[in-house]
Structure formats: structure tokens, C-alpha cells
Simulated scan of single mutants.
Amino acid sequence: MGFSVTTWNINSLRLRMPIVEQFVLKHKPDILCLQETKVPNDLFPASPLRAMGYEHIIVHGQKGYHGVAIASRFPLVEDHRQDYCNVGDARHISAVFERGSRRIRLHNFYVPAGGDEPDRTINPKFGHKLDFVEEMKQLNADSEANTSAILVGDLNIAPLEHDVWSHKQLLKIVSHTPVETEGLLEVMQRGAWLDLMRQHVPENEKLYTWWSYRAKDWEAAGRGRRLDHIWSSKDLGPHLQRIEILKEARGWERPSDHVPVTAHFNL
């Protein structure tokens, strides 16, 4: 029995619903996880998603900032929203779904970007990011009995050398500083998470999901980073068929600076 999960930082859902529809109508993921929806719960545009077959939607949003949502063709139960760092930001949501005899907990994260200066003494946003990652270290893929786990989202960290266009030049740039990359790798190690995007792509190959708006020609510049991630509990690793990074979406009309990333499983 197969299923697919897409993660996408959409950078304002209401603004970019046309490209969400463009993506869904062609690629038809079973579950769509969105970040940076930037819409409060009462104004969330559920109707167009339901019209495309996503009858089961859970949201955690706020006006103008952050926001995460899960839209699914399968029933979602036991949904949970955790307030990381206790500041009231809408940055996490999770729910359980079932495929065949398997129960799966799906986490959707939007980790703080961290501002521009990688020094928490002068940049509170960077300190917030580090505290958020520290709290994530308590999240274990095997924490629920008889339940597999998938973690997706914009984690705003490119942890490996070839997750960025230039490891050397980005070591002092937020998203690839050693304190961030080591922290995220510890989240993965402590929580027994499997990096599915690197399961079929060796660590010495470049892998990007984000290209800055600042580049006049993002494709020619080639300065990407892997900020979006799909992890799972180790029992799901053998069931991963493939990962698709839809790079072409970065060139669509009024695009997000992130592109959809989809994991296909066969249980």
C-alpha cells in the first residue's frame, strides 16, 4: 500500500494558492504539509483544498506570520500543537493517520529562520532559533508504542557540507553555522530519526530545496540550500521508494523561495 507526503514552505498560502493548485493537480500527493501559511485559523482557505480531495485538514496559524497546516486525503486523528519556546508562535502541528495496519505520527515544523547575525548576544532571533532546536532534541521517533513517525518541514538549517552551494563561504551564514548544523544533527541522532532525503542521495552530492529571492537569476546563480527536510523513524526507511524535489516550482509565477519535496512510500 503506497502513500506520498509533500512538505512545502509556501510563504503565504492565500497569495500562492494558484501554484498550490498547479502542483496538486499534477502531482497529487496524499498528504500536503505546508509551512509559513501566514493566515489565522478562521481565515484558512480550506475550500480549495477540499475541492482537490483533501477532506481532512488541521491548521495552526496566526495573522501574518508563521503557521503550519496538514491537508490529507486520509483521516487525521490525535492532532497536537506544541508551543516551542513558549512564545505563542504557530510553528508545530502533528497528527496520526493509518495506512493498512500501520499507525503513523506525522510532525510538521517551521523552525525559526534566526535573522542575519549568528550571535545570540546581539541577535535575539538567533537565540530563539537555537533554543527551539534545543527543545526539539526531546522529540523521539519511537516515543509512541506501535506507532511509526514522519517529521517534515522547513527546518531552516542545511546540516551537511553539500546541503549548501559553498560550505566554506557559508560557515558564518545563518542556516549553516556549526552551532546550528551540529544542533540539528543532534536532534536527529538523539531522536533516532532517519534522514530520508539522503537515503538515496549520497552526502557528497549537492541537494537543495531553497533559492533566495535576492538572486536576479536564481537558477544561473545556483546558490541553493537544503532547508526543507523529511525524516522518519527507522522502521519506515526500507519502505521509501523515492524523494522528489520539484526544482521547477521555483520558476513558477509568483513562487515561494522554497520548492515542494515529496516522499513516496510503499508499505
Results as ranks from 00 to 15, higher is better:
Ala220Arg: 10
Arg120Glu: 15
Phe126Lys: 05
Asp195Gln: 07
Arg99Gly: 00
Gly100Cys: 09
Ile150His: 07
Leu171Trp: 00
Asp154Leu: 05
Glu134Asp: 13
Met188Gly: 00
Ser233His: 00
Leu151Met: 15
Arg214His: 13
Gln169Leu: 13
Ser166Lys: 11
Gly153Thr: 06
Val201Cys: 14
Ile150Gln: 04
Ser148Gln: 15
Arg226Tyr: 02
Ala192Tyr: 00
Asn146Trp: 03
Lys234Asn: 03
Ser175Lys: 07
Val201Ala: 06
Thr181Arg: 14
Leu106Glu: 05
Pro118Ala: 03
Gln138Asp: 04
Leu139Asp: 15
Gly237Thr: 06
Glu135Arg: 13
Gln199Ser: 11
Asn146Ile: 00
Arg105Ser: 01
Lys234Trp: 01
Glu180Met: 05
Asp154Phe: 12
Ala149Trp: 06
Gly153Ala: 09
Thr181Val: 02
His229Lys: 02
Leu160Asp: 12
Lys216His: 11
Met197Arg: 02
His128Glu: 13
Arg223Gly: 04
His128Cys: 00
Gly224Gln: 13
Gly183Trp: 02
Ala215Asn: 14
Asn108Tyr: 09
Glu135Ile: 06
Gly224Lys: 07
Gly127Lys: 05
Pro202His: 08
Gln189Glu: 14
Gly115Met: 06
Thr177Gln: 06
Arg214Phe: 09
Gln169Phe: 05
Trp211Val: 14
Asp116Cys: 03
Val111Arg: 11
Val164Asp: 05
Arg103Gln: 09
Ser175Glu: 03
Gln199Trp: 09
Thr147Asp: 11
Thr209Asn: 12
Gly237Met: 04
Asp217Cys: 02
Val179Trp: 00
Phe109Trp: 06
Leu196Ser: 08
Leu227Lys: 07
Pro178Lys: 10
Asp217Ile: 01
Val179Leu: 03
His107Tyr: 11
Asn146Pro: 00
Ala221Met: 05
Ser143Asn: 01
Gly127Gln: 08
Ala158Asp: 12
Asn108Glu: 10
Gln189His: 08
Thr121Lys: 05
Arg103His: 07
Lys129Cys: 03
Leu139Glu: 14
Lys206His: 05
